[in-house]
Nucleic acid binder design. Sequence first.
DNA 1: GCCTTATTTCGTAATTATACGAAATAAGGC
DNA 2: GCCTTATTTCGTATAATTACGAAATAAGGC
Lengths: 94, 94
Amino acid sequence: MSDVFQALSSPVRREILALLKEKDMSAGEISEQIDVAKSTLSGHFNVLKSADLVFTVKQGTTITYSLNTSVVEDLMSGLFNLFGKQPQSDKESL
Amino acid sequence: MSDVFQALSSPVRREILALLKEKDMSAGEISEQIDVAKSTLSGHFNVLKSADLVFTVKQGTTITYSLNTSVVEDLMSGLFNLFGKQPQSDKESL
DNA sequence: GCCTTATTTCGTAATTATACGAAATAAGGC
DNA sequence: GCCTTATTTCGTATAATTACGAAATAAGGC
């Protein structure tokens, strides 16, 4: 849960996710759209992968990034758990 | 938007919010529940206030913190905007 | 085997975040 | 006016984040 929020706290990473919402893209394609060094982007990709927000498929030398929509649903339910009216059942989710 | 995610990325701050979900609490009451120094908590309160996730009422020498539920709704709609099926209309929200 | 293209890892620097204890501020009761 | 209680600000230390360019790795075409 921390990982997901931490990942989402960067505007650059949210921009990556917004691009991937439209279509799957390679690291190179993403770097054409976002003005930071490729090495920096690569670091952001790692953060997004660790948070399980994206997954990759490697085809030859290009790596295609895709949005992992199921984790977004997990995030939503986590937010409901954090803020919803129901009493907090387990604190592990914090 | 960054502020909110950044605020939510800390487990300590999420624990504060979970406590405030149950009921309004003073800084002192919160510090009885969470094992970090009061000065450290005070810093977390500032982050939460900057993100507009909580608001305060001062009565005498005690300050009561309350959850700002409307910002949670803003967060939800921001997430839908980021991940939802509809094409991204404005990039300002990033 | 060698070049080119795609991407990541490494070394480094600057900024930001998190934590603590001690000192400062603010309000109320006596 | 002085003490007590509640909370914040300050000084400081450490760790994490973000960024860059250069070098390393990986795969494919020739």
